[in-house]
């Protein structure tokens, strides 16, 4: 059984899975049903120092920069619809992500249809390869052109971040509560060093100002 966290709570991954080196992080969400306009959601993650800032812009991993310089972080692909979040029952084996499966548009996002489609993006991290000065990995989702399309994260449902070991066993999960916020960028969770352990924290906080505000928060100038 995975640990299910509430907002703000944390869990020691090192204790939950001693010797853990590789982790598979999935970010899942469900688009609103009966929604005819385009609705693009993207995943990103940030490699952060102890000050909570990136070292350089290359520490932002997203659809245009899929792996970190250190080789420890890789965004495997989006539009991962062959394994929607609902099929990820706890303990199920995760098949190896097909890196060629990404057929997303220019934003790497997904377009809403009438069915309330589910999406899942997968990130692989080798904790042992992370540089010592990287203390935190923050995982976020953003809505493309949120302002002009007047879309917020609160329109999504079943927004979930999951941490699995390489065998596909789910260690911890955080589901975003349905709140009526105006956020257009949302940090779902963070993996971070704490007293020689790796921990995970359920964040569930974001920015009304979207991707730009998220980038500014972590020290990226746009």
């Amino acid at each position: 059984m995975p640990a299910i966290l509430q907002k703000g709570a944390n869990l020691s991954l090192s204790k939950a899975s001693p010797g853990l080196v590789g982790v598979v992080i999935s970010l899942g969400w469900k688009l609103p049903s009966n929604y005819s306009r385009p609705f693009d959601v993207d995943s990103s993650l940030f490699l952060l120092t102890q000050q909570g800032q990136v070292r350089t812009d290359a520490d932002l991993i997203y659809y245009n920069n899929r792996s970190s310089i250190c080789g420890s972080v890789e965004l495997m692909g989006d539009n991962y619809t062959s394994h929607p979040a609902s099929e990820w029952a706890s303990g199920n084996q995760l098949t190896s992500p097909d890196r060629n499966a990404s057929t997303g548009g220019s934003t790497g996002g997904s377009t809403g249809g009438s069915t309330g489609r589910e999406d899942l993006e997968v990130i692989q991290v080798d904790l042992s390869k992370l540089p010592a000065e990287i203390f935190r990995l923050a995982f976020a989702i953003t809505i493309h052109e949120a302002a002009s399309r007047q879309q917020q994260v609160s329109l999504l449902s079943e927004v979930v971040i999951r941490i699995c070991n390489p065998a596909g066993n789910e260690l911890v999960r955080y589901a975003l509560p349905q709140e009526r916020g105006r956020e257009t960028a949302m940090i779902l969770g963070e993996i971070y060093r704490y007293n020689n352990e790796w921990k995970f924290k359920a964040i569930g906080q974001g920015f009304d100002g979207g991707f730009a505000a998220l980038l500014a928060n972590f020290g990226i100038k746009v």
Binding site: Q6, K7, A9, I203
Partner: peptide, 9 residues
């Protein structure tokens, strides 16, 4: 405000 200590940095 739906807050707890874990949400605070």
């Amino acid at each position: 405000r739906h807050q707890n200590f874990g949400m605070v940095s």
